[in-house]
């Protein structure tokens, strides 16, 4: 299914009122893993909402992404408890280990995306991070981290992503 078709199907499912905009965007993201430009344009046309407005909503809420993600998305919690217990060091260590610099959040081979996240409410495990596979089928939480352990996770998930892509080998189960 292409984004155009998806938009058409979703507009008939949720109705063409302004109130269905966020739901439609959520479903498109569920299907494609992000919001492709053609999808946004199709939604704009079919709902009669200007593209600028659709983009306004798509960039305002945290859930939406305009670019495809890595096989694994690492979300380092930047809630207060995690911040005070060292999540910035964990985050920086992971970015270094993954070779990310500047504004980049996804590795070139699209194995891993590393981003800052809002509090998940697992403050007792601070600092904590969540890893989700971009197809939504896997979800792991790693708590009580330090930079060393965090770096190890980058290598583990890199390898896992390589396995998912069909080369390399790794054992099953959580890398943690």
């Amino acid at each position: 299914m292409d984004p155009e078709e998806a938009a058409e199907r979703l507009v008939s499912k949720y109705g063409s009122g302004r109130g269905s905009l966020i739901r439609i965007l959520q479903e498109i993201q569920k299907t494609f893993g992000y919001l492709p430009r053609e999808g946004l344009e199709a939604v704009s046309r079919r709902l009669g909402v200007p593209l600028s407005e659709v983009l306004n909503v798509a960039t305002f809420y945290h859930q939406f992404r305009l670019e495809p993600l890595g096989t694994y998305v690492v979300q380092v919690c930047f809630g207060t408890a995690c911040y005070l217990r060292g999540s910035p060091q964990v985050y920086e260590a992971m970015r270094l280990a993954a070779g990310l610099n500047g504004g980049r959040t996804t590795t070139e081979d699209r194995a891993i995306t590393i981003e800052k996240a809002r509090c998940f409410g697992c403050c007792a495990l601070a600092p904590v991070l969540m890893v989700v596979s971009s197809n939504g089928s896997e979800r792991y939480i790693h708590g009580r981290l330090n930079p060393q352990e965090a770096r190890r996770l980058v290598y583990a998930y890199r390898q896992r992503a390589a396995v998912a892509a069909g080369y390399g080998s790794a054992s099953a189960g959580s890398p943690g």
Partner: peptide, 20 residues
């Protein structure tokens, strides 16, 4: 879809209406 300001009631209502 998540935004801190949605805890504020008029922003929450805006979100349901498909706005921000």
């Amino acid at each position: 879809a998540g935004a801190f300001v949605c805890g504020e009631e008029t922003a929450l209502i805006a979100a349901i209406e498909g706005r921000s």
